[in-house]
Simulated scan of single mutants.
Amino acid sequence: MARTFKVALGQVRPVLGDVAANVEKHLAWAARAREEGASLIVFPELGLTGYQVQDLTLDVARPPAHPDIQRLVAASQDLDIVFSFVEESDEHLFYVACAYAAEGRMVALHRKVFLPTYGMFDEGRYVAPGRRFAAFPTRFGRAGMLICEDAWHLTSPYLLALDGAHLLILPASSPARSVQDEEGFGSQSFWRKLLEVYARLLGVHILFVNRVGFEDGVGFFGGSFVMAPDGERIAEAPVLQEALVTAEVDLTLLRRVRYTTPILRDEKPELVLRALERWLVRRDASAFPARDEAEEGCRP
């Protein structure tokens, strides 16, 4: 495994509903990343479809074997490519998915687990939730993928780190909200602070790639970055504009951080498991009382 590698962040502006055009842009940007010496390029959430797909879901959804998807997979012979699309399963269920392609094959596929249905978001109306978080091997060590809202839940990066992930890959479609003077947008500031905590507590590199552009009046701020295990941002893209940003990732830093601050080492997952089991039993007992108690409550 290489001690360092160059990563490219493909902060693109997708065309809503035009999969063919977005595939071409991904291929062109992958070629640029290859020319700049990158070994891995990461694109944003739903970079192949646009975010506000809603009633376009049937039109833009693709199974992994579809030619549009396989063109990007084929382009990964000498450059690992992470891209996101609306996946259609064999059962005709639809997911927000993220694929990791390397050496001309799809190495891993993550389906977004947490679908926001608050504020401007209504994802659960159109797509199904994924059911698992799992790390997988790459030539840069074990990696794990999260998609936007997944990262707003503590369990997601925690489970991936316990599964051995050294690298967290995080495509997003995060809107620009709450303009601030020094920190840019409020949503941008939140992502920086949140991922700094994860990087430091879990001792992982994080690749956050957010899209730009406008859809149905919603603007996406970009601001993609690479964060080291010590919480430092080693590269960052501008806001509100497309950009291809490269950064050198030093994997030896992870070794040093996990030695000097061994928080992940000292975790006690068996304690968490026992506590969750007790909590689930209490919750189920509260939601489904014994028959006699239920009948008693119905008597006049």
Rank of each mutant, 00 (worst) to 15 (best):
A2K: 15
R3K: 12
T4N: 13
V7S: 08
L9G: 07
P14I: 01
V15G: 12
A21H: 07
K25S: 00
H26I: 03
W29F: 01
G37M: 03
V42E: 04
F43H: 01
L48S: 03
G50Q: 09
P63G: 02
P63R: 03
P63K: 00
A65W: 05
P67I: 12
A75D: 14
D80H: 08
D80F: 08
F83D: 09
F83C: 05
S84K: 11
F85A: 07
V86A: 10
E87K: 04
D90Q: 11
Y95S: 12
A97E: 02
E103V: 10
E103H: 13
G104S: 11
M106R: 11
V107L: 06
H110E: 03
R111E: 13
F114P: 06
G119C: 04
E123N: 04
G124V: 01
V127W: 06
P129L: 10
A135W: 02
F136S: 05
I147E: 11
D150K: 14
Y158P: 11
A161G: 12
D163F: 01
H166R: 14
H166N: 15
H166I: 08
L167F: 12
I169N: 08
L170I: 12
S173V: 13
V179D: 03
E183K: 12
F185I: 02
S187L: 01
L195R: 01
E196D: 04
L201G: 00
G203P: 00
V204N: 01
V212W: 00
F214E: 04
G217H: 02
V218R: 00
P229V: 00
P229K: 00
E232C: 06
R233Q: 13
P238V: 13
L240H: 11
Q241Y: 09
V245K: 09
A247E: 10
R255I: 08
R256Q: 15
T260I: 05
T261F: 07
I263A: 12
E267P: 04
L271M: 13
V272A: 15
R274H: 15
L276G: 13
L276P: 07
E277C: 08
L280E: 15
R283N: 02
P289F: 02
A290M: 05
E293L: 15
E296F: 13
P300G: 14
